[in-house]
Design a protein around this nucleic acid. Structure first.
Lengths: 151, 151
DNA sequence: GGCTACTTTTGACACGGTAAAAAGAAGTGA
DNA sequence: TCACTTCTTTTTACCGTGTCAAAAGTAGCC
């Protein structure tokens, strides 16, 4: 099922100085399969792969991966945190306002901060995070149906 | 204390079709005084202005204001929701990574979406939300002190 | 193989926000 | 001005997301 994934979780973890454990491998493989997953989705997926697991273990792993720079956490307004393995290219995201679906948007410049405001109110600028909001194709289709279904 | 504010809360509320109540007026005046406030800050401020109040009433009012387009809710990653009265000009924010302080950043185009990605993965694009991350001047000063204090 | 430091398990808890029903006030019309 | 209706507020309980802490277990290294 995950044979198509070309992610060597163990090697990734070792390279980052993290111990290779079943939980960590399962989390990395889950994220490779399903980017932009939330903690509960990941817990469910890990539970399917391993005989025993715990919610706390997954949270630990996600924090460890983020701290090691192997994963990135995004947090669109009104949603729980989502994780992805794609790091280091400063890409952005588009989020469906109806269902919360998330897709990647490539950054034009590729490095942070990709935008520079004229005035920064005395702040040192480190990063520009862009979140696009829209309606995904599935929700567009549903709306079309609804319009037809409500005479 | 708030005499300098030129916000007529009652008129704003009436114009939006909302009933004028003590709680709503107090919330609007609080937001006029202290933009980018969180719910708990607003509850505390409202409690100071009125003899009786409740957390739930403030949450109700904030949701009503946002629904009526009088207030906007922002939610920087890792922080509770913040509210502001400045709406309709599609401005952005810069957030301090250390203390969470928020300042406004004017949008260059002034209308949403101010950015247009090349590919949108089938989404209908409605808005581009930009959050700048940095270090505020207060935290910069603290860091300088710390460097001096750690020989 | 055995040691040690790091992980996982388990259970409790904190925070931000919502749900629902009863009591109370704002606006409207006579 | 009074009463009526509808919208707000109060009160209480609850939910989801995420963290803390201590005990048990395991990966990596000698």
């Amino acid at each position: 099922m995950t044979e198509t994934e070309i992610v060597d979780a163990a090697a990734m973890l070792r390279a980052a100085g993290l111990r290779v454990t079943d939980t960590r491998v399962a989390v990395v493989e889950t994220l490779a399969d399903m980017p932009h997953s939330g903690a509960d989705t990941i817990v469910a997926s890990v539970a399917r792969r391993l005989s025993t697991t715990s919610r706390q273990a997954v949270y630990n792993v996600l924090n460890d991966l983020a701290a090691a720079g192997l994963a990135r956490r995004i947090e669109p307004a009104g949603q729980p945190g989502l994780y992805e393995l794609r790091v280091g290219d400063n890409h952005h995201h588009i989020v469906c306002q109806r269902c919360g679906a998330v897709a990647d948007i490539d950054c034009v410049t590729g490095h942070a901060p990709c935008l520079t405001p004229s005035q920064t109110s005395g702040f040192d600028l480190l990063e520009a995070e862009v979140t696009f909001w829209g309606v995904c194709s599935d929700c567009k289709a549903l709306t079309a149906d609804a319009v037809v279904a409500v005479p």
